[in-house]
Write a protein that binds this DNA or RNA. Structure first.
Lengths: 131, 131
DNA sequence: TTTCTGGATAGATGGATGTCAAATTAGAAG
DNA sequence: CTTCTAATTTGACATCCATCTATCCAGAAA
């Protein structure tokens, strides 16, 4: 494991119970917020999507810079943010650097959005905020 | 339906396929990013948690201001952001305003974080970013 | 070692965002 | 109408963040 990433994993134990579950304390909320902040940028979402959808399970950074309109350092920055959020991992192999998703960190978020006592009543659709 | 919320619903059709699914285009990514940006603040996460976990299915704003260290206008601002993201709805009844979660918008996010072809291999835990 | 290339870091900058105090609106009650 | 209270809006301010250019670091190949 290369050394160029010395980062704090933010997705510790904070999230497991759904949002509709027990009350979130300030620390848990702060940790979770950091993860969602990592997902709050379009470029980062597309990066994570490309990495998570990759056939081989990993993607070379060299393939992540061309699909975007931003500079290479910006891509590097976004990858770092995703790394710090614990959503992806990367390691250097020779000249190139490869990134993979961290499945446990990603699937953990899935349980957050289940609403046990609120199975979505389809009749309510349309009462949401309207344009 | 009261008039004090004239907001664009952001959680349109953008999200349904998991992050590991088909490639996200720029528009879809932008829409999704807006939802996650709404979730990227600790106060907003706790607000949504309080609302989603409420027994009666709704919460009066008057009960949402005391648990926090921030001023009432700030709470109002955060509620507006959550509303604009389509995650909650609110309406005034007499003197008070009540907020409810929007189940469809919330549960929809759940499907985003499933990894069909990547059932989380427990052996990989620990290879994540380390402190 | 020197050179070349892929990728990360450093520093600067413009725009977005969380916060508050003060002013405003909506409704209830005199 | 006047007054009081709940909640939102306005406007200002400080901080944060996405982006860029320039520079630096890590390997590979001479």
């Amino acid at each position: 494991m290369s050394k160029f990433l010395e980062l704090e994993d933010v997705t510790a134990a904070s999230c497991c119970a759904p949002l509709s579950g027990p009350i979130l304390d300030e620390d848990e909320a702060a940790e979770l917020a950091r993860v969602f902040k990592a997902l709050s940028d379009p470029v980062r979402l597309r990066l994570l999507n490309l990495i998570a959808a990759s056939e081989g399970g990993e993607v070379c950074v060299c393939d992540l810079t061309t699909p975007f309109d931003v500079s290479a350092p910006t891509i590097s920055h976004h990858l770092k943010v995703l790394r710090q959020a614990g959503l992806i991992t990367g390691d250097r192999r020779g000249t190139w650097v490869y990134y993979r998703p961290v499945p446990t960190a990603i699937t953990r978020l899935s349980t957050l959005f289940t609403l046990p006592h609120l199975t979505p009543p389809p009749e309510l659709v349309g009462l949401d905020e309207e344009a």
